[in-house]
Write a protein that binds this DNA or RNA. Structure first.
Lengths: 143, 143
DNA sequence: ATTGCTGCAAACTCTTTGCAAGTTC
DNA sequence: GAACTTGCAAAGAGTTTGCAGCAAT
């Protein structure tokens, strides 16, 4: 996503286009490893001039409210964010903070099928995400 | 789980049997709605005499380390706990903090089958949990 | 007796808030 | 110019820590 696309995204969601919002969205997209607010603030500060930490939090909250980014569910009290729009699941490492994406349309279809036939009592499903816990067997240390 | 069973659980995990640990495990089991540390502390204080809040946190951490209870993944910075041992999934309400359990062995078998045939590259699965997001259509306000 | 656990309060970390000054449309 | 956004610093919330005293084995 280039700068023009970022600006158009902001406009699409009726948000005023400010340098801070452009920087936060750019960072959230660039930092693919489900960054924390702090990761995003650090990234911006290392490239650009400056941004207040409180502003990063406010912008992230705005983006989540609008659905531009999503919060990632974790067992940690530090919030992590995800700018990927396509439906996907998450692979969680059982002994590190690493989280990777899993795209699998076959799986999505199987799940949709299953729950179309077998409804959950008193519950209307809107979305299904898998948390797949395990170990990565490559050597990457990306988190 | 009665008191004797709670004591035996603690012994099984080589933990000294203290009134505080008994109270925390009892509370975690009794409070079925994925309680927070604070829920647990409140519950104990309302029945029993006293327990320090720091102690509750330390005991919960010990239990999680031993695998006696689990942390529940949420999008909130407040940690929630789950004392249910049997494999299950979670139903998340998309507009409240309510989380309910879903037991479904058919589903588990389908998933196991699927990933037995279709491995994920560079990843060894240890556990799969579904986060099912949606709306409850009953009238309960339990969270 | 030894080892480990609890209580307490202070410290920490991440996040939120309030408001004046500055930007965007 | 009206409405919204940012920066800053202080406050808030949940959680962790250190250590002396106490309890379990």
């Amino acid at each position: 996503m280039n700068k023009t696309e970022i600006i158009n995204t902001l406009k699409k969601y009726c948000l005023k286009v400010t340098p801070q919002r452009i920087a936060v969205l750019d960072a959230a997209i660039t930092l693919k490893n489900h960054p924390t607010a702090d990761n995003i603030a650090e990234y911006i500060k290392s490239n650009d001039p400056n941004i207040a930490t409180g502003t990063v939090y406010k912008i992230l909250e705005t983006f989540v409210d609008k659905g531009i980014i999503k919060k990632v569910q974790t067992e940690s009290d530090i919030m992590r964010y995800d700018a990927v729009q396509e439906k996907h699941h998450h692979l969680y490492c059982s002994d590190s903070e690493r989280i990777e994406d899993l795209y699998d349309d076959d799986l999505n279809m199987i799940l949709d099928d299953y729950f179309r036939k077998k409804r959950i009592p008193n519950f209307k499903i809107e979305d299904i995400k898998l948390q797949i816990i395990g170990r990565f067997t490559d050597n990457s240390k990306s988190k």
